[in-house]
């Protein structure tokens, strides 16, 4: 475990906690895309099947359980909680799941390391994670008025992805650990999706004004 990987995991964890905190305490999911949250739940459910087959470390298992538990509880809150669900803006959150899920399924069937169920689901989850933020980014662009917590959530997720790339570079040089090129490409695509958001996030921070994305 290197510092980039740890920092990446911690920003990922922080992003989820910020979102849960917002939903749980303010009882509002305004500005949060249910589509993105459902895609993340699917990402974790398909990727972390290995908790039943492989043991890596206590840290690894605990983190996997946290990401599974938190993503499904966020979905539950937005869909089922009697107060939270009222703040869900269904009209704005119109991105279709299958636009992302079907191409990722197809791509996983075409480009993978091994043709086994577990490996295909893992590859699918890597592709899907790369694009799962899109409904959230579209929603931010549409609502324009972004509250602090939602802005921080997206910023922390972007930071997590950037730190993972530094982690792969570091692991390559120190451990000769090769991340498969599938992971590299998906990771780079995912990080690049945040570039635009990062630009406006830092601008608003520098000028000390409220974060707004251009229409």
């Amino acid at each position: 475990m290197n510092i980039f990987r740890l920092a990446g995991d911690m920003t990922h964890l922080a992003s989820v906690l910020v979102l849960l905190l917002k939903i749980h305490t303010i009882k509002s999911c305004a500005g949060v895309s249910l589509k993105t949250q459902e895609l993340y739940a699917l990402v974790f459910a398909t990727r972390y099947l290995d908790i039943f087959t492989d043991f890596i470390s206590v840290y690894n298992t605990v983190m996997k359980l946290i990401f599974l538990g938190s993503s499904f509880s966020i979905v539950w809150y937005i869909r089922r909680h009697k107060i939270v669900r009222r703040s869900y803006d269904k009209e704005q959150d119109t991105f279709r799941h299958y636009f992302l899920v079907l191409p990722c399924l197809l791509l996983a069937l075409l480009i993978h390391e091994k043709f086994t169920v577990k490996e295909l689901l893992w590859t699918f989850s890597i592709y899907l994670e790369a694009v799962a933020i899109l409904p959230q980014l579209v929603l931010l662009q549409r609502t324009r008025n972004i509250d602090n917590l939602t802005g921080q959530y997206v910023f922390l997720l972007g930071a997590y992805r950037s730190l993972y790339i530094l982690n792969w570079i570091y692991r390559y040089f120190t451990e000769r650990h090769f991340v498969h090129w599938i992971t590299w490409i998906a990771g780079l695509v995912q990080t690049l999706l945040y570039a635009d958001f990062f630009y406006y996030y830092f601008e608003s921070w520098k000028n000390n004004v409220k974060l707004q994305l251009p229409a």
């Binding site: 690894n60 993972y164 000769r176 650990h177 090769f178 991340v179």
Partner: peptide, 10 residues
Amino acid sequence: NSNQDLKDEL
């Protein structure tokens, strides 16, 4: 490469 087979990242 067994290092690669074991997916130790999250």
